[in-house]
Amino acid sequence: MSNNLQLNAEGKLKHFLTIDGLSRALLTEILDTAESFAAMSGNQVKKVPLLRGKTIVNLFFENSTRTRTTFELAANRLSADVLNMNIATSSTSKGESLLDTIRNLEAMHVDMFVVRHSVSGAAHFMAQNTAPHISVINAGDGQHAHPTQAMLDMFTIRQKKPDLTRLRVAIIGDILHSRVARSQILALNTLGVAEVRVIAPRTLLPAKVETLGVTVSHDLQAGLEDIDVIITLRLQKERMTSALLPSESEYYKCFGLTQAKLKLAKPDAIVMHPGPINRGVEIDSSVADGSQSVILQQVSNGIAVRMAVLSMAMQSTGDAR
């Protein structure tokens, strides 16, 4: 179902809503395409005319800096016209207004929506309700998916450690509320890593998390053994007020990534974080800024990966017409 929705009749990427249901070959194609764009970023002229004359709307119902700006840069470098719309969510703006927003923008003959929304399934809903020539790229929906973030993470991991099949990857923190973690787990498993391990207290793990294809640890020290890639997740402040955790300091004590704990992983382990970072909560500054950190590479790679996704999706809708 999600499979059919995302791919056109030729099996090409039409919408990018979730990693779920996409093949290893397709994910690899995204990474390879991104690599060719990444090579360009050192050039004097960073622009290519691939999407000249196309209009992309960044439709952000939820705040974002990094994701929106890298999507915008990606679109600019592909020579597309970009319209940024930041629509504050309120409890009254429900499905109907989402649909109305889509309809209005469709009437302006746009070619692609990049959407972020606080509700899981919002991107699917848009993809199901847009005109057939429009592509929808999910830039994060509720707790469901953030597929371009996952792909830029895969890209970063592949840069550092080309043979993914040997890797053991640990994801630490709030898996329950994280769309990033869900997409990362799916992508890592599709690309065939040796192990995905989630490390968190029970309150921050969703029910039957092991069905996602992960091993589970509640102990950071023990959980870091043999790990090649460490992904720390952002801890939202409201997790304390909703009785999921006692305090930030206790979380830091148990699950905060420090230099001492980092030593428990493999010596060449890399450290990742989707941002924005809470220094001294989920990660210590010395680790975030340390030699094993690739956090800023993730950000740079975000542009190339998003260029790859935008161009692939636009090509497939071009074929369809």
Partner: peptide, 15 residues
């Protein structure tokens, strides 16, 4: 339902 499917789709579950 809170279970494997709600976890996969990131939808809030009812245990």
């Amino acid at each position: 339902h809170e279970g494997a499917v709600s976890t996969r789709y990131g939808l809030p579950g009812i245990p």
